[in-house]
Design a protein around this nucleic acid. Structure first.
Lengths: 323, 323
DNA sequence: ATGAAAGCGCTAACAC
DNA sequence: GTGTTAGCGCTTTCAT
């Protein structure tokens, strides 16, 4: 691969001039511009972003750490983020953490070594490990440390909305299938749900699942619930798990929503594909992704941002799995 | 962020020694090792991979270009690739091309500037643009140029298998919902299907959809098919479109598989979630992802690889949407 | 076993 | 307008 020196030589100018041309900084006469451009094309030259980054101290890369890109919620978020990242002239590193502390830490080391301009951590399993780091970080869902901004949906209120919807449609024997306990989001969804139930004087059963989207494992957990058909309303912590639950109920000959009403969480595209289509609590993925990247880039640019929790509103998406 | 010089100074050695220590190349006495390690930890120093890359001419990064990470097939593939990439000590850049030539070209420029070690292009909409490039490239599905290896499933045979399955279960009024024409894969699936039908003396109808996974648009296309219920067997070009078709049929009160049998393609996780569970043609995602990255890394390492088409076997996954 | 110094590809301050 | 040069953080010969 040719370098700036080659181009300069062939164009009969100094490397400074080529650099100026490349960056549009400083004066370069039209004639030399032409010559330089010609040589660049002839040589198929692309400036080395690594060398540039080393000098400017800005690699123009952003890292997205997510539990798993296969999870529809996260891959929809990734799409929004990747798009915005590109539009801002940055490139995206992808890291699947598998909700695993060790993996997350390994990623973090690598990302540091690449001097990424910023990091979006989601559902982080770490805390102080992000302390010394001199790279702007923003967190989705789980809190990392007081100095790191956390963005999340209003999961607590989402839980409340879910309960009230089931209650309003007549459910009184209610089950909540709760997600893993190391996810702040699922804890809050559960708490909101239970609190709202308490206020109505209704008792709800809660069972905890230890995976958020592995179909087979979800099925195994479902089988452990005795007499699931005795409930008339079920709130599941995410859409995938709700989809599996729906299938499980249908397999048992239980009619949804006539006999059991079902409500999910996320509003990932999967809900629309189901029959009956899934009622769910929507997390506005696009807004979340956009806010994350906006706040991160502001930090990268040294702009002041308020360090606090940013809560995005959740809302009911009423479809066919509830009455 | 501190650099190798800082560490050297504080440890009272030269930068060469620190470098040797860092890379495990050349002799460093146990004592100095200790001292250096101490200073590294005290300073929270991480070697700059960019500077290293500029010298070694290997950034240890791999780029994955895919149409869209939201597509279950591609995000499952991405998971496999990300994992393997990390295991080999590389990091992954993610680029969504949206099946858009311009976007793909823009990505390509950026990736060149970052001097990525290798590129995995999927369903590329480009050809010669990859010519001059001095970076190892491997392609999934669409062919780029004679010098670039293409890996894909045996789509043609997959189409044949799909037809023969429908035929064997008694279907004679058969429809194929075909994917966009700029995807080599969907063309081959169609050809295999139609060829197999021809051999049995059966005529099949074919309609082409111009999106591969946008639910709303898929629904619109479905509505344009008149009397879809007149068919007794439908082969859909991928699982998502099959899921939407299933839902559409159910909405019309058509019983699957009793009245219409349905078969998809991909074996993405969505098929299991449906009710009835979707019969499909499996593309072994893990094998594909692994082969792609293996062949790419071999090229990166300068090992000889046979430049030819690599075809991965497809197979029938019989579930409940067919008899 | 360790250090000095050249060089990787680039930017930018400064001189002309 | 353009060139010279120092320096970004690193690796690696070649001395010692």
């Amino acid at each position: 691969m040719s370098n700036i020196r080659d181009i300069a030589e062939r164009a009969g100018v100094s490397i400074a001039t080529v650099s100026r041309y490349l960056n549009g900084t400083g004066y370069v006469s039209e004639k030399t511009k032409k010559r330089i451009q010609q040589e660049i094309e002839k040589a198929g030259y692309t400036p080395n972003a690594l060398a540039r980054a080393i000098f400017t101290k800005n690699s123009r890369t952003i890292a997205l750490m997510i539990p798993n890109i296969t999870n529809p919620f996260f891959n929809q978020m990734a799409t929004v983020i990747e798009d915005y990242t590109n539009k801002m002239g940055y490139s995206l590193f992808l890291c699947n953490t598998e909700d695993n502390r060790e993996k997350e830490l390994e990623c973090l080391e690598v990302l540091k070594s690449y001097r990424v301009s910023g990091i979006i951590a989601s559902r982080s399993q770490c805390k102080e490990e992000y302390e010394g780091i001199k790279i702007p970080v923003i967190s989705f869902e789980n809190h990392i440390s007081p100095s790191v901004i956390t963005v999340s949906s209003d999961n607590y209120n989402g839980g409340r909305i879910a309960f009230n919807h089931l209650y309003d449609t007549g459910c009184r024997k209610i089950l909540h299938i709760k997600g893993p306990h190391n996810f702040e989001a699922t804890e809050l969804r559960c708490k909101g749900f239970v609190d709202a139930a308490y206020e109505k004087g209704v008792n709800v059963d809660v069972v905890e699942f230890e995976t958020d989207f592995q179909v087979q494992i979800l099925e195994e957990y479902l089988e452990r619930i005795k007499n699931i058909e005795k409930y008339d309303g079920i709130f599941v912590f995410n859409d995938i798990a709700a989809a599996v639950t729906l299938k499980y109920l249908k397999g048992k000959g239980v009619k949804v929503p006539e006999e059991v009403q079902l409500i999910g969480f996320d509003d990932s595209f999967i809900g629309e594909l189901l029959y009956p289509a899934l009622t769910t609590i929507r997390q506005p993925i696009k807004e979340i992704g956009t806010l994350l990247i906006e706040l991160l880039i502001k930090q990268i640019n040294g702009e002041k941002v308020e360090v606090r929790d940013y809560l995005i509103k959740t809302e009911l998406i009423k479809r066919e799995s509830t009455l």
